[in-house]
Write a protein that binds this DNA or RNA. Structure first.
Lengths: 332, 332
DNA sequence: TTGAAAGCGCTACCAT
DNA sequence: ATGGTAGCGCTTTCAA
């Protein structure tokens, strides 16, 4: 492997001069620079970024720690992050977190000395548990975490607001017995969505004990939720599912049971996955710009790495919007 | 920032001993080890992986260079890679390649000294152009590239075979005038699919100049393809779209024009995206286990990094399968 | 403008 | 079992 030493030797200069020339510093004789560049090209010299990071004390690398995410969600958020990180001439180090908080904490520690900053999305544990607030600190921005968790800057979709939006919409459309299909109870997003649902149902309908069917966000959960509702012959005129995937399955199951969607029973979801527009009737849902979470999170982190103190600007809440479609009634 | 030096000082030992203890080597007195671990814990010492990589001459990091991919595709392949890489105690460095081959080559060079090996998916350029075959070499496995490109090991989905499969299916279902909606011409996958289509159409129908409508794999292309077919009043009884996304859009457009899908016109796609099962009629398509590409590619690379010469085992072709659904006729 | 040399934080070799 | 020390490949003072 050819090192800068060898380039210097071939060009007949010191490594110091070679380094300066290769990094485009001004104080190098133009003719000397030529010799060095020629030598580097001829030897096919490629700088060793690892060593470079060590001396410069920066890696130009951003660490990203995400949970196990479903298709679109994962790629969209990465796309957002990559867009801004790439433009800043940096690169991404990926650390998925399957498994326990301990394992995740391990993954985070392993990033020490490889990254300048961290983007962490902790779906079911808080910053302290992950060792983000300990003695060893690395600039970190939380994505979709509990706001104000550990005092760390964050970018988050307002799940609570989104849930309120959609529940209020169901009420406005005349629903009075709304069922909620919940997500995993250890998931922050799921809890916030359920909270928004409960609050609106209580405020608008005076219902303090609405029916909540458990779910887990995954394949199959919507189906079982529908069956369970059907089996116990629950009385309901609307369903708010904590995510679209479950909503879509539930719709299929209800329709098979002879229920007319969009009139007899209104259905709404959360996430606005591409599928939502393709089912019949199209699914009313909460749209949140997830790419935005990546973009804003990365931008925020970059600013912090530049030494800026974001202050209140380090607490970003992204407001979701309601996408009204056929599953909650005919277009107005 | 606390270094191993400090831990050693606090524990009253040399850095050498500290290093040995912290790395779990055997030749350390149990009591000494205790002191060192206690010191490390108290100081909240986290090893600097960058420095570690430099001395050990390995980073335990795998570089992944992918093009701009659509949702599912991207996440599935990353998931596959991550599964095996994670199990091997390694981590992923992500380098998306938007833009020119030059820019990509730059991204690849930037990985020198940060990764032990590379997984590269070059959709529209060959290994040589990307500098993968030059003087500076890093162990590399190609994903979904032209087979035998630069003599590098590869894992690839057999697009040609998949296209043959689906075209033969259309012929078997009685189609005689099959239109192909192609993908981008600079895309390897797209070219292979078109080639498979042309070969079967020629062999089975004797048609050497089938109608091929240009497309680009993206949103909108299926719609325009359909409109263009309708506008010029082409005669056709089947469409093979180079990917599902375009197929789904095309189906919607044809149906709006009053065409009965699955009988009047058969439609088939390629990729088997989740959406394919949710449209009506469900879309017949070619299913390729894309996660498998990630898994096998990563495994292959790991074996190479272990010093193994995979020989012929370093040339993996993954055979796609046909998923027959309603868009090519009633279930048999 | 150039070079010598001191690290960056760690591991591994060679002594003891 | 432990310590001293020479690097890993590079950047960056400090002098010249």
């Amino acid at each position: 492997m050819v090192t800068i030493r060898e380039v210097a030797r071939v060009a007949g200069v010191s490594v110091a001069t070679a380094s300066r020339a290769l990094n485009g510093l001004a104080n190098v004789n133009v003719e000397t620079r030529g010799r060095i560049e020629a030598a580097a090209a001829r030897l096919d010299y490629v700088p060793h970024s690892g060593a470079r990071s060590l001396t410069r004390r920066r890696s130009d690398t951003i660490g990203v720690i995400l949970p196990d995410l479903f298709g679109e969600f994962f790629s969209e958020i990465i796309r957002g992050i990559d867009m801004v990180v790439h433009d800043a001439g940096k690169i991404l180090l990926l650390g998925n977190m399957h498994g326990s908080p301990q394992e995740t904490q391990q993954a985070i520690r392993a990033m020490r000395g490889r990254v300048d900053g961290l983007l962490v999305m902790p779906p079911n544990s808080d910053a302290a548990t992950l060792g983000l607030t300990g003695g060893w600190r690395i600039p970190t921005v939380l994505l979709n975490a509990r706001p104000y968790d550990g005092g760390l800057p964050f970018v988050t979709v307002d799940n609570y607001a989104g849930a309120r939006l959609v529940t209020e919409h169901l009420v406005a459309r005349g629903a009075t017995r709304i069922v909620h299909v919940a997500g995993p109870q250890d998931n922050n997003d799921a809890r916030e969505r359920e909270r928004g649902f409960r609050d609106v149902v209580r405020e608008a309908l005076g219902d303090t004990t609405p029916l909540v069917v458990p779910g887990d966000f995954r394949d199959g959960a919507g189906r079982s939720a529908a069956r369970s509702l059907l089996a116990r012959q629950s009385v309901f005129d609307a369903v708010f599912s904590a995510n679209d995937l479950m909503a879509v399955e539930l719709m299929a199951e209800l329709r098979d049971a002879g229920i007319v969607l969009g009139s007899q029973v209104l259905v709404a979801g959360f996430d606005d996955i591409p599928l939502a527009r393709y089912v019949t009737p199209q699914l009313t849902t909460v749209h949140s710009d997830i790419t935005r979470v990546g973009i804003d999170g990365a931008r925020l982190l970059l600013r912090i790495l530049d030494g800026e103190d974001p202050g209140e600007g380090g607490r970003l809440v992204i407001a979701p919007t309601l996408a009204v479609r056929g599953s909650t009634g005919p277009a107005e």
